[in-house]
Amino acid sequence: MQNPRHELEVWRGDWQLLSIDPECLRAAAYVRLSGAPVSIVQNAEPWSIVSGAYPVLRGENKSQISGADAIVKRLRSDGFRCPHEANQMTTYEEADAYALEGYIKSSLSPLLDYLWWADEEFFQKVAQPWYTKELSLYGQFVWTNRQKKRMLNRFMMTPDAQISEAKVKLFRKQTVQKARRCLEDLSVKLSDKTFLFGLQPSALDACAFAYLAPLFYIPWKSKEIRKELFMDNLDKFKNLKLYVDRFRKRFMEGSAISSVRLVQRPVRWYHRALEQIQKQQDILLFATFAIAVNVYLLRRTVRRLRFSWPAFENHARQKVQDSYAEMAKNLGMKAEMQPGA
């Protein structure tokens, strides 16, 4: 892995983050920390990948490794290690790092998923406009809906039983409790150190940053959860917030960001029309409504006219009968044979 032709493809970022997805952030942070010669590509077409989710590490011969776990493992086996791991890491710390990584992932990722997909206010006001800005038409209308459905289904599953819709509330309660406990534990673990294991960063820091940063930077809407996690007055988790800021400024900004390439969305012919439609949405909506009402009224009037006009009906029947009579005559039959006479 000596040549920089390796590319790490991640979700696009916003709100001062390199990527909005925690797993992508984790892989990117590990690349930064270990100094591996991998260029980062921001993209927004998860349906075009085989595994269906970012991050993906593309190498020579079109080889692909997907998933942050596999990428970190691969980079590690190629000799790219974080400073702390390369220098002085005891087996005791290794075990702690492994357990903590799993702990952070399993307690914070349900909360992030819940906040992004299941909080209706946030989804309509922030997530959906963001997708509209970043995704192509297919993504906006098909992929987003599918993903949302999938996520909501996932929330309703537990290892032992399937919960009904009404139990989403219970799920929310448990998720927030779990996340809060995890944040408390991390806060205790970090105390006032620079990184979780002291002065130098390790792979665990990449993981912790990846799951904490979206929590602090994305403008979540749900007031209850904000309150329960002390997001507004950060006295309780002040050290975590400072830690995330420090990590971002040092590894994810400035000179570090220069090797990040953004894949632009190609300009299509219908984009202009869509823009126009979006601009004049109100007028178009009103016009459609007005036309629909007019058509309905017109049809109703015509129908009423037809039914309340016996003369017209008699006239029509007479005409039909005449035509039958003529047909019979032409065929050489008697006129009594005609139906309905």
Binding site: D96, A99, L100, G102, Y103, S106, S107, D185, V188, K189
Partner: peptide, 18 residues
């Protein structure tokens, strides 16, 4: 103590999940 609890919780979670 709360420190002991926060030390064992990652392992409990590891066993309960993975």
């Amino acid at each position: 103590t709360s420190e002991q609890e926060s030390a064992i919780r990652p392992y409990v979670e590891m066993i309960n999940v993975t």
